[in-house]
Amino acid sequence: MCGVAALGSATPLSAELNVPIAARVVSFLQPGPAGTVAAAIVFEPGNAASEAEAAAIERAIGSGLAAGRSAIRARRVPVGAIGSLAGFRLAFVTTGLRPEHAGIAAAAARSSVLTISSDPACVQTARCVVGITSGPKTQIIVNRAAARAANIRFGSAFLMLIKEI
């Protein structure tokens, strides 16, 4: 369970990231990913909420999680070492990292990395490309500006079904 509520956000926050949905979102990238998709789990050592979500994401991915024609394989990247995300195609931004969002976004833009978070604030502030929230209906939010900054493009059918901001 993420502890974002402790940060005092006015926005309702979701539980930990729905990784299977995140993997499906990856499959709608254009061009479609094939082979292994290297994913970074960006977390903050010592931040309990962040570490807990990182562990949950690791468990969900296991030794590899299918995403269309590709398989996601992930490893942890401490937020302090976020200077370069080179070699990654995808980054899961764990909760509790709001002060680091700007740096994460800059690194992701430099390396054309798709950032996904369960923290809506990261998407609403154009620091993350995709936000996934849970509730009565699965809500997927894509930030167009963040996507453009990282040179990320999704299939149009997918974009017509989600909320783009």
């Binding site: 949905i21 499906r24 269309g68 699965t138 997927i140 059918a157 997918f158 989600i162």
Partner: peptide, 8 residues
């Protein structure tokens, strides 16, 4: 794939 992604 879309149904599995958005849940309906």
């Amino acid at each position: 794939a879309l149904q599995e992604t958005i849940g309906e």
